[in-house]
Simulated scan of single mutants.
Amino acid sequence: MDTHKYQAILIARRSELQHRLERIETDLDRPGNPDDDDRAIERNNDEVLEELGGAGQKELEAIEAALDRVVAGTFGACAQCGQPIADERLQAVPHAALCSDCLKDR
């Protein structure tokens, strides 16, 4: 398995997510609109941004864990059963910690 390839993919995705999370944070920190109708729309938008930020943060944590596994030499091995994670799964979800079988069992 070419762990360097996956490491590069993970680092690029981490950078992309960090940039996106910074933009979300900036949008959430901007002052609110004084108009009541606009403020209601902004609150709805803020909820969506917070949800996206939360999902991005979870993915960022999973990416950091995957990069730790690269360094530890355990990347590509299922964290539950120890069997290799299929290359197809890693191509779809490079930060995957579980093989497809163990993921189904959860």
Rank of each mutant, 00 (worst) to 15 (best):
1 M>P: 09
1 M>Y: 05
1 M>C: 08
3 T>L: 14
4 H>E: 09
4 H>I: 11
6 Y>I: 05
8 A>Y: 01
8 A>W: 00
9 I>G: 02
9 I>P: 03
9 I>D: 01
10 L>Q: 09
12 A>H: 14
12 A>C: 12
12 A>S: 15
13 R>N: 14
13 R>G: 14
14 R>C: 15
17 L>C: 07
17 L>Q: 04
20 R>S: 12
21 L>H: 04
21 L>E: 05
21 L>Y: 04
23 R>S: 12
24 I>L: 04
24 I>A: 04
25 E>T: 08
26 T>V: 13
29 D>L: 09
29 D>K: 05
29 D>P: 02
31 P>K: 05
32 G>H: 06
32 G>L: 04
33 N>M: 02
33 N>K: 06
34 P>L: 05
36 D>Q: 07
36 D>P: 10
37 D>G: 06
38 D>F: 10
38 D>V: 05
40 A>I: 03
40 A>T: 02
41 I>R: 15
42 E>W: 02
42 E>D: 08
42 E>F: 04
45 N>I: 04
46 D>H: 09
46 D>S: 06
48 V>L: 10
51 E>M: 13
52 L>Q: 14
53 G>A: 10
55 A>N: 14
58 K>A: 12
61 E>L: 05
62 A>E: 12
62 A>P: 03
68 D>M: 15
69 R>V: 10
69 R>Q: 12
69 R>H: 12
70 V>Y: 12
72 A>R: 08
72 A>K: 08
72 A>G: 07
73 G>E: 04
73 G>A: 09
74 T>V: 10
74 T>W: 04
76 G>F: 07
77 A>D: 00
77 A>H: 00
78 C>D: 04
78 C>E: 01
79 A>N: 01
79 A>Y: 00
79 A>G: 13
80 Q>H: 11
81 C>E: 10
81 C>P: 07
82 G>L: 11
83 Q>A: 15
84 P>N: 09
85 I>Q: 07
86 A>D: 14
88 E>K: 09
90 L>T: 00
92 A>Q: 06
92 A>M: 06
92 A>S: 09
93 V>W: 03
96 A>P: 03
97 A>R: 02
97 A>E: 12
99 C>M: 11
99 C>L: 09
102 C>N: 10
103 L>M: 15
